[in-house]
Amino acid sequence: MYEIIGTRASRAIRVLWLAEELALDYTHIPAKPRSDEARAANPSGKIPALREGDAVITDSTAIMTYLADKHGALTAPAGTIARARQDAMTQTILDDLDGVLWTAARHSFILPEEHRVPEVKDSLKWEYARNIARIEDGLSGPFVMGEAMSVPDILLTHCLRWAGMAQFPAPGEKLTAYQERMQARPAFQKVIDMP
């Protein structure tokens, strides 16, 4: 059995959603960052973490990639061109969306106040809008990679949701409809309804 460590209000929601899509047997430990439970899994106290027996994996994308590969779903097979394209999209989302949103969060409430530069957020919002428009232009199927859901869909949907909560620019019509479809999925709804 897997243990997924981290609150739904963090990137752990990505792992929880993937686990639900795969119908995995798991226990959720809703630990906050730097809590005793989080530090027991990851000495840095960062979440999420996945515990499988004595093994611990950290970082939401690493966890999702591991689980998708292990269970042979929500991913293209390793060593294929399709997988290389999927990995490229994963990295694009992490670099162009997640990284921008994380920088904004750091300058909003994470960094010590004397190290925050609130003025950077206007630039980050501009960059996010440019990047999300480019991703929207490339969306040609019901999912990011075409006809089948994959790990990048969970990343993108989470970033779109995060951006909305952070009052970043809204996506265009195509990505708005995509986000609504993804968030209507039963697995996503189950995670959102968790205590």
Results as ranks from 00 to 15, higher is better:
19 A>Q: 06
124 L>P: 03
30 P>Q: 05
178 Y>C: 03
22 L>D: 08
43 P>I: 06
185 R>M: 09
181 R>E: 06
86 Q>G: 00
34 R>S: 14
185 R>H: 09
5 I>N: 08
45 G>W: 08
15 V>L: 07
29 I>E: 05
78 A>S: 15
133 A>I: 00
132 I>N: 00
65 T>G: 07
61 T>N: 02
21 E>N: 09
182 M>E: 00
67 L>K: 03
126 W>R: 14
111 L>W: 13
67 L>A: 06
186 P>G: 05
11 R>Y: 08
99 G>V: 04
73 A>W: 06
45 G>L: 09
164 G>K: 11
37 E>P: 12
136 E>T: 05
179 Q>D: 01
107 H>E: 01
27 T>W: 12
27 T>M: 14
42 N>L: 02
156 L>R: 03
170 A>M: 13
40 A>H: 12
79 G>I: 04
72 G>A: 00
87 D>L: 06
96 D>F: 12
128 Y>M: 04
137 D>H: 10
43 P>G: 06
4 I>Y: 07
149 M>I: 06
127 E>P: 11
134 R>T: 13
48 P>A: 08
128 Y>V: 07
22 L>T: 05
8 R>H: 02
4 I>Q: 05
180 E>Q: 12
118 P>V: 06
81 I>R: 14
10 S>T: 10
132 I>F: 06
177 A>M: 00
48 P>V: 09
127 E>F: 11
105 A>C: 14
176 T>P: 10
104 A>V: 06
19 A>L: 02
186 P>L: 03
106 R>Y: 15
138 G>Y: 09
